[in-house]
Design a protein around this nucleic acid. Structure first.
Lengths: 203, 203
DNA sequence: AACGAAGGTGAGGCGCCTCTCAGGTTGCGC
DNA sequence: GCGCAACCTGAGAGGCGCCTCACCTTCGTT
């Protein structure tokens, strides 16, 4: 790839990163090109589809989530690790409206098979320590992602930190001590197949 | 209003109701008119803005929610009433993608000042019975609405009942017994002013 | 039955966004 | 410094949805 092409690619990514973060994934491509100081044609040269651009912009997030997951597994207390991981993911969602959209549209927290299998271990460890309620599964983590994403979207202008309260309540519902209910949960967890249908990236 | 105008109005409402339910609030107005067997001009004659149409379509929901609230207050057990109310509202959201959108965009569960003050009583009663955790407020109900709405949107095609599981976990987090955490919730509840800013209908 | 007001119609203007392509420009290996 | 492949450009075609308005039809009243 030629030097100017690389340069333009970077300018486009910078512009897209910033606009996505502020306004979500639905920014006009023309505006991204203009912000980058480049023509719309060049944008299409570098990124043939909108999805290609989105993927490139959020590529690094996979590694960030993986690092969060590893830190969670390294935590002394399994529950604290579990909480820290979900909090970290939600912080990413809250800090970037574009990533928030990504979390809703497809790859929830654990995009990519790698992150997903780390998450499985975080959940397993929290189960083993007896602090995560036994009837909750890995697939239920999507509920957390979707719920917090929705609260972030609704409140980020008026009450930027409100999602932390929502998350805290959600996490309290996932504690083993909360399972003191009559009977089992009213619906089975999403199957891995259903999860895969909803979030293809989480092989 | 002339007879044919009334007739067309009803045809438009029927068409809008059905399309909104299946596809959410973002259906083209032209398609609604076509489905109603009426011209786009007539749609604009009856409903000068999209919002006017949406309001008319979901007008009756206010009464439904109010009835749910009254039933909740009449329940023997305060917590059961609380759960029944939120379940009922979420059932409305799950049954109608358009109403689901309405719940997200503005008036959450309790649209209209009337429904909202009934909700306040439901929460107060659940507090008084000691079953709803004390640090949860009326304003926190919006988290439930937003969260379930997001899960409904994400799963309704692949796993239509999955939201019930999400709701059950959420409700478990709202039980008094779940408050066994270290320290207070990490963020204050939304203030009534913030809630009003987000959902103007809930005076 | 005749008339005026209310209502219906749909082509067309407008704005917004996506995507293409013919023509001009530039980096880079030789 | 030649030449070509890679690259950039931006006008414009095309699609979609919103909304208007000039013209025609129908209702309902007298």
């Amino acid at each position: 790839m030629r030097k100017d092409a690389v340069h333009n690619r970077e300018r486009l990514l910078r512009a897209a990163r910033s606009l996505f973060a502020d306004r979500g994934l639905d920014v006009p491509l023309e505006e991204i090109a203009r912000t980058a100081g480049v023509s719309i044609g060049t944008l299409y040269n570098r990124f043939p589809t909108r999805q290609a651009l989105v993927d490139a912009v959020f590529e690094d997030r996979t590694a960030v989530v993986a690092r969060l997951a590893e830190e969670a597994l390294a935590a002394d207390d399994a529950w604290e690790g579990f909480v820290a991981f979900l909090t970290g993911v939600c912080e990413l969602q809250a800090a970037d409206l574009g990533y928030n959209d990504v979390a809703v549209r497809g790859a929830a927290a654990g995009e990519s098979a790698g992150g997903y299998s780390l998450m499985r271990r975080i959940v397993a460890r929290a189960h083993a320590s007896g602090q995560l309620r036994a009837d909750v599964t890995l697939e239920d983590m999507a509920f957390v992602t979707w719920g917090i994403a929705a609260t972030v979207r609704a409140t980020f202008r008026v009450a930027p930190g409100a999602w932390r309260r929502h998350l805290a309540l959600t996490l309290d519902g996932l504690r083993a001590s909360s399972a003191a209910r009559t009977g089992p949960l009213p619906a089975p967890p999403l199957t891995p197949e259903q999860t895969a249908a909803l979030m293809p990236e989480c092989g």
